[in-house]
Every structure is written in structure tokens, then in C-alpha cells.
Design a protein around this nucleic acid. Sequence first.
DNA 1: CAGTTTCGTGAACACCGTTAACCGTAAACG
DNA 2: CGTTTACGGTTAACGGTGTTCACGAAACTG
Lengths: 249, 249
Amino acid sequence: MVGRRERQREATYEEIVRVSRDLLAEGAELSLRAVAARMGMTAPALYRYVGSYQELVDLVAFEIDKAATVGFAEAADSQPLEDPTARLLCACVAFRSWALAHPREFTLVFANPVADPGCARPREAVTVHSSALFFTRLMLELWERVGYPVPSLDELSPAAREAVLDPIIGKYDDLPDDNRGLIWVVMEGWTTLYGVVALEVFGHLDPRVIESGDMFVTAMRRFGVRLELQDDWPRLEPIVRARMADAVD
Amino acid sequence: MVGRRERQREATYEEIVRVSRDLLAEGAELSLRAVAARMGMTAPALYRYVGSYQELVDLVAFEIDKAATVGFAEAADSQPLEDPTARLLCACVAFRSWALAHPREFTLVFANPVADPGCARPREAVTVHSSALFFTRLMLELWERVGYPVPSLDELSPAAREAVLDPIIGKYDDLPDDNRGLIWVVMEGWTTLYGVVALEVFGHLDPRVIESGDMFVTAMRRFGVRLELQDDWPRLEPIVRARMADAVD
DNA sequence: CAGTTTCGTGAACACCGTTAACCGTAAACG
DNA sequence: CGTTTACGGTTAACGGTGTTCACGAAACTG
């Protein structure tokens, strides 16, 4: 049975996250005191819920990623199930739009140095991003339908093989061993997507290129040829650009 | 003539940068008070030299980038001038090694949100990275010798054409108009390099993959085929891996 | 009911960036 | 040369941060 106490505690956690996200959205800084004040508490009280400021950051980052992921899913669902390529690309566009619209949130989630490298448990060090799980699922859908080339286990380097067979981020028990290499392809895609988007968010690219999104489209096309769907690109690019155009939120 | 006053002032600037870099290197945080204390001054005195904390950060970031670039240049010079491909790749390896060995410095220089996007002068907003200039030079050397495919001006999108003809980062007056598209290729390479390295530095990749550097090598190879030097890769990969092995500093 | 855990407070510490008023000294000028 | 100015530093203070500690009230537990 779930006692009244625990329910209250759970509600407080939710309020902490909600208030934190509000602060971020308003452009304010995320700080223990600010969160506490807005909740009608004092800062030390928050230490009953999080062990440190960094823990608060991690908690909020996790929830922000989770919330953003449903946005990515909506973008994917704007395309029919029969077109997993378009679904994947639209999710990528949604990721970019979200990142550009919420730079501080993006920084929190994706440019936050994850714990100490010398941490004893590397297992929990890498925060499980629901977005990572979601994009992996999209890539799996795409593979099942069109079947882009995936390296076999013995084509992978030893380190990659280990990482792919015993992945840190989430469990893919439903993934048969013969296309475990799909996870490697996902990581490849993640690096190319991350490269453009992060540079755009940080402003380390020509503003005109950012505004037009041409480098992003180029990166998408480049990963597209990696997935051997270059023949489909004339059909796909208009879909991508259309979704880039209406980036309201 | 340079007065005694200005020389003293210049020396103080140098000391500020030196002390700041020492602090970063020691794992301490970069703060006005810490810098001032180590210089035997009080914090407000620093306001005679920098207008704000952010200005100090920008100054230090600029100098760190400059210093790191000479390291990249040394790595390039480990290869003969006749082999610009190896020179470029070795510089990339040096960039990765430096980033992994100096994560805070990397974050400061390359993951530091560059000013407000609504800033009036986008010209000076994007800090001129000497590393960017250096890598561009390497790419130019490579092009002059082996001549990878470069988009012509009318192949580029309008935004890209503008950005390439009137680049924000540095001046490339010596660059003839007919291979202005080279800058675009440089940006493509920059995004792929940045994607892997940033993810590695932030720990958003499987530790085993980071340690082995396999994703980095994959990214290099991928950009290699973009430069149409895949036939040369069997020769190049050992060079890359060798230089990755001895990443002492 | 008594005992214990949970959750909050207030005070305090050690930092941080930033501003203000102040002042000696070194350069610049008439 | 003397006078003036401006530079480069000081101290004090304000408001902000994360964090620790001792304490108390309120809520669960036996």
C-alpha cells in the first residue's frame, strides 16, 4: 500500500520539477533558493529531496528530456506508420527545433558533463535519456521496413561489440543478436545529429547558416546516404523543410 | 611609442590569463575573486581590465584556443608537408586528445553559448577561433594538393553562399571565389568532428566506445569518404590510431 | 499514549559577481 | 618645475549562491 506520506513526497518531487522547469522557461537561473522560494520553502528544505544542486539538475534534466521526447514522438506521428523514414527525419527536425527554442534546456540535458569519469558506477553515470530510447526505436522501425546496412558483430571493434551487446543506456532485450549492430548505427546517427544541433545552439556557426538550417539539412542528407536512402531523398527533403518551416513552439 | 604604462597594463593582462589558465588546469573554478587573490589583488581591481565576468571568460577562452591551436599545429607538423591528408587527420586527433584531457577548457571554448543571439553586432559575437582558421588552412592545403570535390557557388543555398562569400570568422581574402565553397566543406567537417568529440567529452557515449576511440575513427573515416580519399584510408587509419595511442598531454 | 521518523525552519559559513566611494601615485600638461 | 588628471588599486557593502547544523513541530508507528 502507498501511504499518504509517500504520496505527499511524490507530489513535492513533481512540484520541484515543475517549478524548476518554469524557472528555466522564464529565462531565470535554476537555483535551489529560487526553486525553494517559489515553493514557499527555504533552500535547506530541498535537501530532504535532493542530495545536492547537481542532483537537482540531473533530476530536472531527466524530466525535461522525457517531456521533450513526447514532442519528438508527436512529430514522428505526423507521418504515417508506413513511412518510418519520414518519421525519423521529422523527429530529428523536432529535436533541432526544440533545441534552438530552448537552448538552456538543451544545454542542461545534452551538454551537461555527466558525473565524474572516475565514478565507481559507470552504469548509472550515463543518465538514461528517454529521447535516446525513442530514437533507437525509430531506427529499429526503419530497419525492419527498409533494412539499411548494419554491421555484424564481428565487423565491429571489440569495444563497440561490448558496448552494443551490453548497452548502458536502457535495455534492448527484444533486440536479436544479429542486428545488435543497429545500436552502433544509432550512435553514428546521434553524433551527426548532435554535431550540427549543438553547434547551432551554441552559436558556433554562421547565423545565416543557422537561420536557414542548411547545414542541418546537409547533415540529415549525409546520414541519409549512410542509411542508403539517397534515392528517396528528393521525396524526403521537402518533408523535412516543411516541418522546419513551422517550428512554432 | 609604447609607454611604460601600457606595457605594465599588457603584462597584467597576460598575468590574468596565465593565472586563469592555471586555475582551470588545477581543476579549480574560474572566478574573479580566485584570479584576483592569486595575483595578490582584490576582485574589484580586475574590473579595471575586464568589464564583467563573462568578458574574462571570453578573454581566457580566446587565449586557450590560441594556445591549443599551436598544439594542433605541432601534431600536423609531425607529418610531411607532402601529405596534407595525414596532417589534417593528425590535427583532428590532437583536437580530440586535447578536448578529452582538458574537458573544462573545451567546454569554455567550444560549448560556451556565444553572447545573446539578439546581439546588435553578430559580427563580433562569434569569437574568432584561431583553431577554426588553422583547420581551414589545413583544408586548403589538402584541397590544393589532392582536390576533393567542393561545391560551386551556385550549388550552394543562398544562405550558405552569403556565409561563404562574407565569412564571419576571419577573412579569407586570399581565397579565390571559385573555391569559396571550400569554407562550406570546412563547416561540414567541423560539425562531424565536433559531434563526436563533444559527445565524448560530455560523457554522453558509452565509456568503452570513448576509451577505444572507435566512434571518433568512424567519424574521421566518414568525413574521409566525403573528401573522396577512401582509397587512401588503409594507409591513413594506422597513422591516426598511432597518434591516438600516444596522447600523453 | 509514548517513541520515532519525517520535514520544515533559522542561523551561519564560505563563496560568488558587482557597485560605490575613496586614495595614493605615476604620467601628462602648462 | 609645479599642477592636474587619470589610472590602478583599496575597503565596504549588497544581494546572490550552495551547503551544513541544530532545532522543533508535526505526522506516523508501536
